[in-house]
């Protein structure tokens, strides 16, 4: 999974804002599966601060080596091929940060997450953000930004969606949204993101169950 936000943070061990927000939702000793876990920063942090038993799935060799270096369990497995090797409700939480938009079938992956986990936590860039809308509206071209730095032809982000899209999908499938956080470009939430999340939110974080 290669989206802008899954690039490893090599500067230090401080977690990205979205990751530290996710951490707050994970109780002590939980069993966690992280899809597209990168170099395992979140799992390492959860292990050290929450005594979490976790596994990450990755396909990128550099990331796999990074996880091993951190002593984080990592399994080479392509999320697009499903999670058929994992039993129902094997995990308490199944996470996927900034990778939903890069998988072949986000709906199937989400269903698999909720099959193997009691709850799923996903984050994705909100394509309904005003800047994205403005870019398309005024320039008439596919939006390119700091968070979505690719051109239309080479982007790994093949299934972008908006906060409203995701809400509608959960409603349609009967998934319960237990928590939703929407962050603006400063990785904070404010009046704008609370009142008009689909306009002012740049990153959406959901906690979902079925």
């Amino acid at each position: 999974m290669t989206a802008a936000d899954t690039l490893p943070d090599t500067r230090g061990e401080t977690l990205r804002t979205d990751l530290s927000l996710i951490r707050e939702w994970i109780p002590q000793g939980a069993r966690v599966l992280d899809l597209g876990c990168g170099e395992g920063q979140l799992l390492q942090n959860l292990r050290d601060t929450r005594n979490v038993q976790g596994y990450g799935l990755e396909i990128d060799q550099d990331n796999i080596a990074g996880c091993i270096r951190r002593g984080v369990n990592v399994i080479e497995q392509d999320i697009d091929e499903g999670l058929g090797n994992i039993a129902d409700k094997r995990f308490d939480y199944v996470l996927m940060t900034q990778a939903l938009q890069a998988v072949q079938r986000p709906d199937l992956v989400l269903a698999e997450m909720l099959r193997v986990g009691r709850e799923a936590i996903v984050t994705f860039p909100n394509f309904g953000h005003w800047r994205v809308r403005g870019y398309l509206f005024f320039k008439g071209r596919m939006p390119v930004s700091r968070r979505l730095p690719y051109q239309w032809y080479d982007t790994p982000n093949i299934h972008l969606c908006t906060v409203n899209d995701f809400d509608a999908h959960c409603r349609q499938r009967g998934y319960r949204i237990l928590d939703r956080l929407v962050l603006n470009n400063d990785h904070a939430s404010g009046i704008g993101t609370r009142l008009w999340p689909n306009v002012f939110g740049e990153i959406a974080i959901y906690r979902v169950a079925c």
């Binding site: 596994y55 060799q61 996880c67 984080v72 399994i75 080479e76 497995q77 994992i86 094997r90």
Partner: peptide
């Protein structure tokens, strides 16, 4: 190898796997 990995994950043992 994946059979071994799956069994280890199923019983909650620490494992890393690369193909």
């Amino acid at each position: 190898s994946e059979e071994i990995v799956n069994a280890l994950v199923a019983v909650g043992r620490d494992v890393s796997y690369a193909e």
